[in-house]
Amino acid sequence: MRLEPRAERSLLLTLGFPLLALMAAGLFAAVLVMLAGANPFTVFALILKGSLGSRFALMETLTRATPLIFTGLAAAVAFRAKLWNIGGEAQFYAGAVMTVVFGTGLLPLPAPLLIPVLMFAAMLGGAAILYAPAFLKTRFGVDEVVTTLLFNFIFLLFVSLLLEGPLKDPMGLGWPQSKKVIADAQLPRLMKGLRLHWGFVLALTAAFVVWFIDRRTVLGYEMRAVGHNAKAAHFAGIPVARVIAKTALISGGLAALGGFSEVAGLKGNLTLDLSPGFGYTGIVVAMLALLNPLGVIAAAVFVAAVFVGADAMSRSAGVPSYIAHVMVAASLLTMVTAVMFTRHRLRWR
């Protein structure tokens, strides 16, 4: 048995294999559901209904997709340049921290000024968090996978320290949480009565900007060249270390915008459970999107639907909502396998 590169790729394969991948992940989840003594068809119907079955459900799904678009873009941008940023979680929190530092009254600006300032501050925070591992990679050759992973733990402890110290809400009844951001720092809801907020529009915009950078700008070209073959890029005269640094700033900034949007648009304040692993799930989103910035939107909505639907389902069907995490992780693995098979085929002799 061996793999041979396919000479050409048909559209059927390019679309069909990823679809098969999602089905395989679903099948795996179905087996687990049966182990829980439930009927997989009922469970999947409940997930579908709970995520897309009503206007309310759909809006809930898009609300959940918003931070995932940001962290998914962060991973996609970095992975395209082969900068293995697994630290989306820390960068996400960095954005949230900056938002509450400057958004809870420190800067008494009107909304049209304050919101851009907060966005910038948040991006700066996230960018700084990823810049350090990128610097260690280019300067000392330290593998960024491990450093970004370890940074997640360090930064979460730092957030905990802040929430029990300088950022602690004195009115919070002793809970480790920050004060609410002021009204001028809040992103308005898209429609009255819904939780979906302008952060979603911001996320869509970010996806288009990233797409534009990738396709039309010198920086996008440099990032792709470095990602595909850093040695040849260096030979051609592309400043590899600088490109990696820029990639880190953009990627970290994007993840941090997710933190900003979640605080300013949805939660209002910072707590230690602001992110149920958005940073890690962003990696799955990026891979499901095949690192395409516009694909990230669809992938984020899909993943969010699984999570939102599973929450609703577990309340009524008695299957643990962790089934959603299993499905998402399984689809990551099946998807990377499927993508490989669109490029190679198996030969049995």
Binding site: F79, I86, V145, M287, L333, V336, T337, M340
Partner: peptide, 15 residues
């Protein structure tokens, strides 16, 4: 199958 060891490893951890 020769998949990316980074991505697969993270996937294994999540799964």
């Amino acid at each position: 199958l020769g998949l990316s060891q980074h991505v697969t490893g993270i996937g294994i951890t999540l799964l």
